[in-house]
Simulated scan of single mutants.
Amino acid sequence: MSIFVLIPGAWLDGEVWQQVATDLERRGHRVLPVTLGTAPTDGLTEHTRQVGEVLAAADEPVVLVGHSYGSFPMLGAADRWPDRVARTVLIDAPLPEDGEALVDLLPCEQRATVTGELVPYPAVPWMSGGELPAGTSERLAERTPHWPARCMTEPIALTGAVKELPMTGVFCTLSGADLAVARGLHASGAPRFAWLANRANRYYELASGHLPMVTMPERLAEVLAGAARGEGEPLL
């Protein structure tokens, strides 16, 4: 049995994990979905603190899962409290370095939307990958219509401790990333990608867009259960 802490991406709440959580619990695991704060004053530091509170309440090291933006507070918390984390899992997520903010890693057209205190739910295809069931985007936008810009502009603080933890990367291939891309990044020799080949790291590919917890929750739960066991494909 593993404890999974599930951190959603921007404009999402803990409810988005409901079907995944149900399937993991049916497999005998314990699941703690996180809903991050959405007040204008909530930044990455606050979100990282919220994740840290969940880690502190768990009675054993957890499998810490971050989707999309959720990788920022996930990596920040794992770096700060590595003894509370058994493995990190990144789902269709960026890989920030110390001092980088999410806005630094966004394409120009997305970066331009990060203005003011609250950023509206995006009505653009990159959010879904183009294959969400009808009405899903509308329901998600009703639950979380805005997201605090501060968490997108506040830089992450990393010491490097998180890179010593076992990591599983889950690529959503309809979003444009896959294992071949990761291998190419590692082969480039850039220092920021060297840790992708750590011996304990493993990878999965899902034929999904950006929200696999919505489009294929049972398969994602299967992948997360496998990640907890250290399964998956190595980089090299």
Score class of each variant (00 low, 15 high):
L36R: 01
G14S: 05
G226Q: 08
H47Q: 11
D23A: 11
Y121R: 07
P155F: 05
A194Q: 12
P122M: 02
E231R: 05
R84Q: 12
N198Y: 08
G116L: 10
V5P: 00
A197I: 12
W147P: 00
G160M: 10
E205M: 05
E15G: 13
V54R: 02
D98Y: 07
A57I: 07
E15P: 11
D13W: 06
G169K: 02
E109S: 09
L196S: 03
M213R: 01
A58S: 10
G14H: 04
A57T: 10
E131K: 13
A157R: 09
P155E: 05
A134V: 15
P107Q: 06
R27V: 01
A157I: 09
Y69T: 04
D59L: 01
P107V: 04
V62T: 08
M1P: 14
T35S: 14
W195Y: 11
G135Y: 00
S175W: 04
Q18M: 15
T173W: 01
P148A: 01
E60S: 11
K163A: 15
R111G: 13
E233K: 08
T159W: 06
G135K: 00
F72T: 04
G176Y: 02
R219V: 08
D13G: 09
N201L: 03
A177Q: 10
C172F: 04
A134R: 14
T88L: 01
P40E: 00
W126M: 14
V89D: 01
E154H: 08
D13C: 06
D13R: 04
M216F: 13
W11K: 02
E131P: 10
P107Y: 06
G37S: 06
W11P: 00
S128P: 12
V51F: 03
G130R: 10
L36D: 03
C108I: 15
E117H: 10
P125H: 04
P145C: 00
M167E: 12
T168F: 01
V103Q: 06
L90P: 00
R219M: 07
S188D: 13
E233D: 13
P8N: 04
T113C: 08
V16N: 03
E25K: 10
V16C: 10
P94Y: 09
M152L: 13
T88G: 01
L196H: 06
A21C: 07
F193R: 06
V20E: 00
Q110T: 15
Q19R: 10
L174H: 13
E109C: 06
G160I: 09
G209T: 02
S188Q: 10
A123S: 14
R192M: 10
S175R: 03
V119K: 05
D59K: 01
G184N: 09
A190K: 07
A21N: 03
C172R: 02
S128T: 13
S2R: 00
G189V: 05
